[in-house]
Design a protein around this nucleic acid. Structure first.
Lengths: 230, 230
DNA sequence: GCCAACGATGTTGTGTACAAATCAGCACCA
DNA sequence: TGGTGCTGATTTGTACACAACATCGTTGGC
């Protein structure tokens, strides 16, 4: 695949993955190849190429004669993914780190501002978008492409589930506000580390926050189970 | 995709990947969809599904109107992949390690025997196969599926290039014998660590050997350049 | 009333014809 | 002689028709 075909493929792939991650396509939702083909003004063939990749990467599951559904993940599998994500997070500062220039530093400062705004006007959607933008900004700090690719996979796989449970339908407004608060701290800490060029610290801070984020998620899941049993 | 279709897909995918890794399909070789379709007694459609995945994972590159070629990798990209692989190697002993039972210990002992045999009758092909079998045996020591998946990707991506340069056409018989010697030491050390259940040590030993393996590769590459400039 | 068999409907998987693109060879001309 | 454009062959990308399969409602028997 090359040229125009490749470009279209990437466009559709990225868009669908984003819809899945932002819960526009929530876990369990059924997609129809023909609908997508119509939306992107093409036939089923190129669409199936995209869906195949999304299935290989674990976002979708196609069943012959039924449909293709957005996957959900049980807490046990999610823990495995998170454990690996924690380890990879730290590598940002270790594998081919890119010393941030002034533009990069400004970008992190801007993130912090956007985050502070969000504290005043909490919104699940805006939070999800900001979280994603921040992740991609972080990825610019390393030049190690395999690390970027794997981190992206782990991020999208975990974040959509985390978002669903922590700040989606399942979560209260309190938890949303609380999570935004934690996120503001993370962004502040990392922005500070970036400002003085301490990329190894960036990795360590990120690692700590990813780990804590999952710990909170597990704690809430445990409480739900407890509450349900009464 | 499900049921029989899935099984066939996995079968063809695994087989083609193995052919690529064992250099039956060396870098630069051109594959034809129709030939493969005929070999596996099907149409181009399911074959294209497999090739698409192999392309997404970086083993192949399809170009409209030309063909699909097995990729090669420059030493710079390879270094990035190796750096990450070194880090992930150690995680085998840290993320959901599985205490080896007697069968597992025996399997490692068998590996050591096979390796000792190989020292007497060196063969590039047998070495490649043994190396691959050993990798898969190592992977049974962790239950972390994402770690398994990523390790596999990095292994296949690096090993085929390493094999080509270290023990393939580019390498002398001396380097092959030398590499087999190093490999025997690695297998011995790891088998010993497994025998006493020290999985954390397994990870550290593996990490060290992966790193040294790449160091040797780079050294040889440097010497070649030097030799060529005279 | 209940259950089983069956058919209608909808969806993904496969086969195939055709479109689009690249490349090698060759004729042709400056 | 060198370059330039054309044509045919080859190969991947796309569209579409059909096969395989699952689901659900219906209908008939008991």
């Amino acid at each position: 695949m090359t040229g125009e075909a490749r470009a279209r493929f990437e466009r559709i792939y990225t868009l669908l993955r984003e819809r899945i991650c932002l819960l526009d396509y929530p876990p369990g939702m059924r997609l129809r190849e023909e609908d997508l083909a119509e939306e992107f003004d093409t036939s089923r063939t190129p669409i199936r190429r995209v869906l195949a990749r999304l299935e290989d990467e674990g976002y979708l599951r196609s069943v012959h004669g039924v449909g293709t559904m957005v996957t959900d993940i049980d807490i046990a599998s999610l823990e495995q993914v998170y454990r690996l994500r924690v380890e990879l997070s730290e590598l940002i500062g270790k594998l081919s780190p890119v010393p941030p220039d002034e533009d990069a530093k400004r970008a992190f400062a801007t993130m912090k501002s956007r985050c502070e705004e969000l504290v005043g006007t909490p919104s699940q959607r805006a939070f999800a978008q900001l979280n994603m933008d921040f992740f991609h900004l972080l990825m610019t700090l390393t030049e190690n492409e395999p690390l970027q690719e794997f981190s992206e996979r782990l991020y999208y796989q975990t974040t959509r589930i985390w978002l669903k449970r922590a700040a989606g339908e399942d979560g209260t407004e309190e938890t949303l506000a609380s999570e935004i608060g934690f996120f503001l701290r993370e962004v502040s800490d990392i922005a500070a580390a970036v400002a003085c060029g301490a990329l190894e610290s960036v990795g360590q801070i990120r690692r700590a926050h990813v780990a804590m984020s999952f710990a909170r998620l597990k704690k809430r899941a445990g409480e739900e189970v407890e509450a349900a049993s009464f």
